[in-house]
């Protein structure tokens, strides 16, 4: 497996990492959601390409799920939610853009080094794919860590899941059931977090998770 087939798979997975990096410096919620929709779209393309080259038609289902739910339904729903909550104008970062980007670059480098070291005898396509997937996963976690707003933490979580799907489709012979269950678990997590957001909002008039810390403040001192 080489030539353009490999290059296109490589490009799509690398694109996903690139979009993850883009998400890192979005400090407005709408922009973040748009980039997330783009993220899911790139994932869809990547999965579809994998379906084509692995000759695995069930991966098209995964791609469709990613397109419908992650690229369309969830971003739209989150858009509505933000509008209802009235927080679409908020700007938030905890750590500055520069350090975050540097950390992101470091994480990508780390995951590539780790993956290339531990999988010397694996299929080169799966190998690259796993390295990119690990980067996406770590970047998603970094987004969750550097944000304070509950909505952007949800988005970080979703992008982390995208990384998981990328890893799953890169490996050959992943059963459909697993993918569907992954997709549904994301959906359910999304619903739960959505309900949770409204509950927080009702109680504290904000979705800033610092309010939760204040509320929990029963320190034993």
């Amino acid at each position: 497996m080489n030539g353009p087939v490999f290059d296109i798979a490589h490009m799509l997975a690398g694109g996903l990492v690139l979009v993850s990096m883009m998400m890192l410096y979005q400090d407005r919620l709408y922009a973040l959601l748009n980039v997330f929709a783009l993220h899911s779209l790139v994932l869809t393309l990547s999965v579809a390409w994998q379906a084509l080259i692995q000759d695995a038609p069930h991966l098209y289902v995964t791609a469709a799920i990613a397109l419908i739910f992650k690229a369309i339904v969830i971003p739209v729903a989150l858009h509505r939610m933000i509008r209802q909550l009235g927080i679409h104008r908020e700007i938030e970062t905890v750590v500055g853009v520069g350090p975050t980007m540097l950390a992101g670059i470091g994480l990508v480098a780390l995951s590539i080094v780790v993956m290339l070291r531990v999988t010397p005898e694996a299929d080169p396509l799966a190998r690259e794919d796993l390295a990119f997937a690990l980067s996406v996963l770590l970047l998603g976690l970094l987004i969750m860590v550097t944000r304070r707003n509950a909505v952007s933490q949800v988005v970080g979580f979703m992008s982390l899941e995208n990384g998981l799907v990328l890893a799953a489709t890169g490996a050959k012979g992943m059963p459909l059931v697993v993918e569907i269950s992954v997709a549904f678990s994301i959906l359910i997590a999304f619903i739960v977090i959505g309900v949770f957001l409204f509950r927080i909002r009702e109680r504290f008039d904000t979705v800033d998770v610092r309010a939760l810390d204040d509320f929990r403040g029963r320190r034993r001192k």
Binding site: V145, R210, R216, R219
Partner: peptide
């Protein structure tokens, strides 16, 4: 008595640390 974000950071740092060890 840490905040959610701090717990996430702990998990994140632990993961990065383990990956570094592996690398």
């Amino acid at each position: 008595f840490l905040s959610i974000r701090r717990y996430l950071s702990l998990v994140f740092l632990a993961l990065v640390f383990l990956l570094l060890v592996l690398a």
